[in-house]
Design a binder for these strands. Structure first.
Lengths: 338, 338
DNA sequence: TCCGCACAAGATAGCGCTATCCTTAACTCT
DNA sequence: AGAGTTAAGGATAGCGCTATCTTGTGCGGA
């Protein structure tokens, strides 16, 4: 008996479960993994033995023996962006329900760090990966291709590729914001951006293109490589007011910049939206409570996480996805600030 | 050669490194783990062989063979609270630098879910744990004691216990806020709380006790079991104004409640701090930018994470901590709102 | 010179599972 | 009835490492 216990933790092992159920270890293993060739009565007996012993499989042994784990690597650019947290929580819920464990990594928007993470996490022999965007380094892309593991990219749509992705068109979102501001009679535009990842730039491009097509002057740009934050929004707004006092509409690449600008505008006595209209992005918690309530683009990050996780599970089940790039859209939330 | 490759990933194994370095696998293993009995020349040769092959150890095999991993379980109440994200990022930095990998879990402030996580994560045979607070279930506490793994509790200080902890006195923080508000001439107090974990209640208790000792009326309490959020702050502030229009100072258990209340006050035309003073908690990003700038208690969460991780590493190195409960204080940040 | 000792390096075994055969028994079909 | 077929369950081996024991080597002291 004691011999069958895990030497370090004292936890019961599969051998002990098998003994109690009166079957061989391999049958117990199969029963617990729902391998269909096992007699239902035996499955019951094994399951019950496992329950009564409080048996939990040893993931290290499982991974080593099967050369495959129940782990799904999830990589997000940063933990400090609430956007990705919500996406991750949705992923986690879907995966856990099917007995998979997410392994979370983040890389501060640094593609080289992302590559390093991929290299490290592949040694954990995950069964699949969920990645944010398509801006991996060439070396990372090679690693991903070579390992042959199923993966789904999130937030951005893969164009001209068979690689599964779930997201929305960042470009179209920028366009929608432009139309909205134009329709409200705005004429002199600015784009305030931080953390210049691909998606921010796609938004910017869509915004600028729409302005151009509408015959407007291109938007003034204030771009910062720093992470977007409320404090940065304050700074950028002050700079903008100093250099371009006649701007009458701002599109912020993220709501926290808009929050900061909103605070600064109040302090400076600049009336929003009378003198200047604000449109944020992501519709983060608080956007609807801000004074004035902030117009923003609601991004379906929880839905993206959920769908991406489900797609990955489908791939693991051997299904094929009819449509690799799945666009689940976005929603403009017009509020007081514009 | 091919025989020594990992069957699933095609990655080189320790056997291949050993062969290239001209030593036995076990010597290679020892060299890479810096076991001191290996000849420095051999260590060099092995290290170089490993580098040239791009060798990375297989964590599953390592864990299985040694019954111990390089994994540290880190449990936080929720991902959606920026406080814990900052703490985790600091932990991660310290652990990674020493070759340890954090395994992050969160439990939505649910002690039973925390217990389940502990049970699951122990099967990963971590080498230690970092936990938030001291409000584990009795069963979880038993699990933790039985497994005998080193652990450090964060954010709260363990009283009358030898279990290592790093944090500050939540109670004293509440007291400090009370003194501050009293010193500013405030007389009618409210405490708005959400997500009623132990630490929130300790803050409340410290606040109320100080008021009592100063001969003040006890603070009116608005407590919600829901997670704290900007939207909830709005609601609670409206309710408070409706039921107790003469309150002249509010202590919020978290800054986001104060943010919401601040927005709502602006909308309702209630002047802050003239008619009512606000004090938040945690000094989250944006507190210093809010209009009016928010008085808050700066909690050293990054420092807590850093120190806790370092203490755990010290325990793993076999050191003993002279002082189990380490108080690293807090700082009241008086600003415009009070 | 020989013995014993310290210590570096290797041989061996096994961690707790699962992949892959292999056995056995029940059944079908001619 | 006998060969062939199918399927359930077990025996065996091995995943890639490391704990532990064993061996070999060099050295000092009697």
């Amino acid at each position: 008996m004691a011999k069958t216990r895990n030497r370090a933790t004292g936890l019961p092992t599969l051998a002990e479960v098998a003994e109690r159920a009166g079957v061989s270890p391999i049958t117990a293993s199969r029963a617990l993994r729902s391998v269909p060739t096992v007699d239902p009565d035996l499955v019951d007996r094994v399951r019950q033995a496992a329950r009564s012993l409080g048996y939990v499989p040893n993931p290290a042994a499982r991974t080593l023996a099967s050369a495959r784990s129940r782990t799904v690597v999830v990589l997000i650019p940063a933990l400090s962006n609430h956007l990705f947290i919500e996406m991750f929580e949705a992923i986690e819920t879907v995966l856990r329900a099917r007995g998979f464990e997410p392994l979370l990594g983040h890389y501060q928007y640094d593609a080289l760090e992302e590559e390093r993470l991929i290299r490290t996490f592949l040694t954990y022999q995950p069964c699949g990966l969920l990645l944010t965007g398509f801006d991996q380094t060439p070396a990372a892309t090679r690693l991903l291709t070579d390992c042959g593991l199923p993966r789904v990219h999130m937030m951005e749509l893969g164009e001209e590729t068979e690689i599964p992705s779930v997201g929305f068109s960042q470009d179209e979102a920028g366009t929608a914001v432009a139309w909205h501001l134009i329709s409200r009679g705005r004429r002199r535009f600015a784009f305030l951006g931080a953390q210049l990842d691909r998606r921010v730039l796609q938004r910017r491009d869509g915004f600028q293109r729409a302005l151009l097509e509408a015959g407007m002057q291109p938007a003034v740009e204030f771009l910062s490589p720093d992470p977007s934050s409320i404090a940065l929004g304050c700074q950028q707004f002050r700079s903008l007011r100093r250099d371009y006092p006649d701007i009458d509409a701002i599109f912020f690449c993220n709501d926290d910049l808009a929050f900061g600008a909103s605070f600064e505008a109040a302090r400076m006595g600049v009336p929003v939206p009378r003198q200047i209209a604000f449109v944020g992005f992501n519709d983060l918690p608080g956007a609807n409570e801000l004074v004035p309530r902030l117009t923003s683009v609601r991004t379906p990050r929880a839905e993206i996480g959920r769908v991406a996780a489900r797609r990955l599970l489908a791939l693991l089940d051997g299904e094929t996805l009819s449509q690799p790039a799945l666009d689940i859209g976005f929603e403009l939330m017009p509020r007081q600030s514009s």
